[in-house]
Design a protein around this nucleic acid. Structure first.
Length: 180
DNA sequence: CGTTTTTGACCAGCGC
DNA sequence: GCGCTGGTCAAAAACG
């Protein structure tokens, strides 16, 4: 279960992105940007289906496109120069996983989601001035991974992509949301 | 001293 | 087949 660190919950249920996220059982919430060092603002999110990577219409780069929380529609990827998507995720299609990406407005480089992660890679990626960080869940036997990178077009946003489902409870639990 | 992070090397998939 | 790219590995360094 994905649990995002926050202090308040004012997210309208109608805009709850977690209703689409198998890794998350309650809505992350909106804190106060001035007072809360863990403030974040989930602006956009995207759920990948099981065939992600085997579908020509979906690609890693396109995953940085967004789904509007208000109506669930897919919008154009935020690339200004019509970069041709490549199918770079094919090698994962046989894995038993699901993927969930979301874009958050936060000052933090990596948000605390209640799980313990071990960083195993950092890579500069094409078309982005910001590095992409790779993490594995440090719980034994849990194969969940996540990627974290700053939005190349708006560095105030962080794009986080989770891959897989945790086979254990979170090690710490911060969220005070009443929607659990 | 055990754990985590860093970072260059390596590998596999894809397009040409 | 070759080059480019993203993802992962693993040894060394840093950290607590």
């Amino acid at each position: 279960m994905l649990k995002l660190k926050s202090t308040t919950n004012t997210t309208p249920q109608s805009q709850n992105p977690n209703s689409l996220n198998p890794n998350c059982d309650h809505p992350p919430s909106y804190g106060n940007q001035l007072d809360d060092p863990f403030y974040f603002d989930i602006a956009n999110y995207l759920v990948f289906d099981e065939d992600f990577g085997s579908n020509d219409n979906i690609s890693c780069e396109k995953s940085q496109g967004v789904v509007d929380c208000s109506n669930g529609s897919f919008t154009s990827p935020p690339f200004a120069n019509n970069i041709k998507p490549r199918r770079v995720m094919n090698k994962y299609k046989a894995q038993d996983d699901c993927r969930f990406a979301f874009r958050t407005k936060t000052q933090l480089e990596v948000m605390d989601d209640g799980y313990k992660w071990r960083k195993y890679g950092k890579k500069m990626v094409k078309n982005s001035p910001n590095p992409r960080n790779y993490f594995k869940c440090s719980s034994g036997g849990c194969k969940v991974k996540k990627r974290v990178e700053r939005d190349c077009l708006d560095p105030s946003y962080v794009i986080t992509t989770y891959q897989g489902t945790h086979n254990h409870a979170s090690s710490t639990y911060y969220c005070t949301s009443s929607a659990i």
